[in-house]
Each structure stands twice: as structure tokens, then as C-alpha cells.
Measured scan of single mutants.
Amino acid sequence: MQAFVKTLTGKTITLEVEPSDTIENVKAKIQDKEGIPPDQQRLIFAGKQLEDGRTLSDYNIQKESTLHLVLR
């Protein structure tokens, strides 16, 4: 499924993900596309910070959801 990641600069990245993907996995995909190390990434969805060990389905993130990427 497709999900979108919006950065603070307003850029939107499109990712191909599965509901079973972990947040860690998603961060690795963002690193592949953008070169941002996962340890600098914080992903926010519905106002919550997403934890590495959880999956997209844990957070009820469905296709075409938009996550927000904040860098630390």
C-alpha cells in the first residue's frame, strides 16, 4: 500500500509499505529515499510519536495515510 510522509519543509515522500511493517522498517525506507539516518527520524501520526517496535497496523495506519517526519 502507499503511505505518505510529510517533512517539515513541506516535501511529501511516497512510500510503499505494508500494514505489518514496523516503524523501524518505515524509517529504513525513508533513509533509502532521503538519506536521513533512522536515529534522527521521529514519525508522528494522529499527534502520537510512533515507536520503532510497533507496526503500522498497531497504529491503525491505512493506505494513503500521511505520517509527519520530524528530525531530532
Rank of each mutant, 00 (worst) to 15 (best):
V5I: 13
M1E: 03
V17E: 00
G47E: 05
L67Y: 03
L43K: 00
K27I: 03
A46I: 06
K6G: 03
S20Q: 10
S20W: 14
N60H: 09
N25M: 15
I44Y: 15
T14D: 05
Q41D: 01
E24R: 15
F45V: 03
D21T: 10
Q41R: 01
F45C: 04
T12A: 04
L71H: 08
K33N: 05
S57V: 06
L15I: 14
E16P: 04
R54T: 07
Q2D: 05
D21Y: 07
I30Y: 02
V70Y: 14
E24G: 12
T66S: 06
K29T: 03
L56G: 00
R54A: 08
E18S: 15
Q31Y: 15
K48F: 11
R72K: 14
I61L: 07
T55I: 07
T55H: 06
A28L: 15
T9Q: 12
P37H: 12
Q40S: 09
K27V: 02
I13N: 01
T7G: 06
G53R: 09
G47Q: 04
K63C: 07
D58G: 04
D58S: 14
G10W: 04
Q31T: 10
Q49K: 09
Q41T: 04
G47M: 04
T9L: 10
K29C: 03
I44G: 03
L8D: 12
D52T: 05
G10S: 04
E24H: 11
K6E: 07
Q62D: 10
H68C: 12
L67K: 01
I44A: 05
T55L: 08
Q49S: 11
Y59E: 02
K11A: 08
E34P: 01
G10F: 04
Q40R: 13
N25V: 14
K11H: 11
P38W: 11
E16V: 12
K29D: 02
S57P: 02
A28D: 07
E18Y: 15
A46D: 13
I13E: 01
H68Y: 15
I30S: 00
S20P: 03
T7Q: 06
L67R: 01
E34C: 13
T7F: 15
T9W: 15
D32L: 13
Q62S: 12
K27W: 03
S57W: 09
M1S: 04
S57F: 10
I23K: 00
E64D: 15
Q62G: 14
D52L: 05
L67M: 09
A28S: 11
P37W: 06
S65L: 08
V5W: 02
K29Q: 10
N25A: 14
Q49A: 12
L71F: 08
V70S: 08
R54M: 13
K29R: 07
K33W: 07
E64C: 11
I44Q: 06
I30H: 00
Q41A: 04
T14N: 07
K48S: 08
I13T: 03
E18A: 13
F4G: 02
E51I: 09
A28H: 12
D58I: 03
E34G: 06
P37S: 09
V26H: 00
R42Y: 13
K33I: 14
M1A: 03
K6C: 11
T7Y: 13
Q62I: 12
E34M: 15
L43N: 00
V70D: 06
F4M: 06
T7I: 12
N25I: 15
G47N: 07
G53D: 11
E18Q: 13
G47K: 04
E24K: 13
P38M: 15
E16C: 14
L50D: 00
V5M: 02
I30E: 00
I13R: 01
S65M: 10
S20D: 11
Q62W: 10
N60L: 08
E24N: 08
G10D: 04
L67T: 02
Q2K: 14
A46S: 09
A46G: 12
P38S: 14
I61D: 03
V17C: 06
G47V: 02
E24A: 15
L43C: 01
L15T: 01
K11P: 04
Q40A: 10
I61G: 02
M1L: 08
L67G: 01
D58M: 06
L15V: 09
K11I: 09
T7E: 03
A3T: 12
D39N: 12
I30V: 05
V70M: 11
L71Y: 09
E24L: 15
I36R: 02
N25F: 11
L43H: 00
G53F: 11
Q31V: 04
D39Y: 13
V5A: 03
P38Y: 11
E64Y: 13
N25G: 09
K48P: 01
L8S: 15
R54C: 09
V17M: 04
P19D: 06
L43G: 00
N25S: 14
I13Y: 06
D52N: 11
E64I: 06
S65K: 07
G47P: 01
R42Q: 13
K63N: 15
T7P: 04
L67N: 01
E24D: 07
Y59L: 05
T14P: 06
K29I: 06
N60F: 08
D52Q: 05
I36A: 03
Q41F: 14
K48M: 13
K33A: 13
P38R: 13
K33M: 12
V17G: 01
T66W: 09
S65F: 14
Q31F: 15
L71I: 12
H68D: 07
T9I: 07
K33E: 07
I61V: 09
T7W: 12
T12H: 06
V70L: 14
G47H: 05
T9S: 13
P38V: 15
F4I: 09
V5E: 01
Y59K: 01
D52K: 04
K33C: 07
G53Y: 11
L67W: 03
E51M: 11
E34K: 05
K63S: 15
T7C: 10
K11N: 07
E24F: 15
H68F: 14
V17P: 01
M1Q: 04
F45E: 01
K6L: 12
L71Q: 08
F45Q: 02
A3D: 01
K48W: 08
R72Y: 11
F4C: 06
A3K: 01
I36Q: 02
F4E: 04
T14V: 14
